[in-house]
């Protein structure tokens, strides 16, 4: 069973930017003879190899695991975060999704809260700060009770897992017309808030994480649901509904002092 292989010639319009405060522009690069079974990042590897041998500066892009789980790779391809295929990261996108002769526009995530470091690499520390504000269950190592002492209804465990599948890549922010981080924050909140272990701190966590999110310069959710449509892990905006509800209740309880 032979796998059909053909090769593509492409024109790439790649965003080049020397640093956070430098102006950026689109540069044109020709990508010749790209095998259609190569991944998108492997296509960029080939292009970079060509740039290096010609004495140029290769395109900087973030990547690591190249199997869709670390959440490092982050590029907008033809206006689409992670490109045209649903439910995959850029590293899992393969060139068979493109046609010979295509022009491909490649840009970084664009959001005030994600400043460009160089070319296609952005600084996502805003996500770190949101998680540090409350994305945990306070449990000291060694003090945990027997694992089966608290049964967790399967549906709750599954829903928590579905939210915890978030890989923190930031495609939701990149896709949102408002550059809002609500899907990310909501996914992190739902992961913990849905579990019995996460309940005692749920209000504190929700208030702290939403407030920290607000401080980072992200926009606000206006229910376009582009985030859900571009999430490589298909996280549902149901998590945002839960966050809205939890924040509403937590604010009310905080105001009333209960």
């Amino acid at each position: 069973m032979a796998v059909s292989q053909s090769s593509l010639n492409l024109t790439l319009k790649i965003w080049r930017q020397a640093g956070p405060d430098q102006p950026g522009r689109f540069d044109t690069h020709e990508a010749k003879g790209i095998p259609d079974s190569a991944s998108f990042l492997e296509m960029l590897d080939i292009v970079n190899e060509g740039i290096i041998t010609k004495g140029g500066d290769p395109v900087v892009f973030d990547h690591d695991c190249r199997e869709g789980i670390c959440g490092t790779c982050s590029m907008v391809i033809n206006g689409m975060p992670h490109g045209p295929k649903r439910g995959v990261t850029t590293c899992q996108l393969h060139m068979r999704s493109f046609r010979n002769g295509d022009t491909i526009w490649i840009e970084p995530w664009r959001a005030k809260a994600f400043p460009v470091i160089r070319d296609l690499a952005v600084d996502r520390n805003a996500f770190e700060r949101i998680q540090q504000a409350g994305g945990y269950i306070t449990v000291r190592t060694g003090s945990a009770p027997e694992a089966n002492s608290v049964p967790v209804p399967k549906d709750d465990a599954d829903a928590s897992f579905a939210a915890a599948a978030c890989i923190g890549c930031g495609a939701c922010v990149a896709a949102c017309p408002n550059a809002s981080a609500m899907l990310f924050t909501a996914a992190k909140l739902s992961h913990f808030n849905l579990l019995p272990q996460g309940k005692p701190e749920a209000d504190k966590r929700t208030l702290a994480m939403v407030r920290t999110m607000d401080e980072q310069g992200f926009g606000n959710c206006t229910n376009h649901y582009e985030c859900e449509a571009y999430c490589p892990k298909l996280i549902s905006v149901e998590t945002i509904r839960q966050m809205n509800r939890d924040y509403r209740n937590a604010s009310a309880r905080e105001t009333a002092g209960v």
Binding site: P145, D158, G198
Partner: peptide, 11 residues
């Protein structure tokens, strides 16, 4: 035990 207490959503 530790992971469950931390909220790791095991099957």
């Amino acid at each position: 035990d530790q992971c469950v207490a931390q909220g790791v959503p095991f099957a």
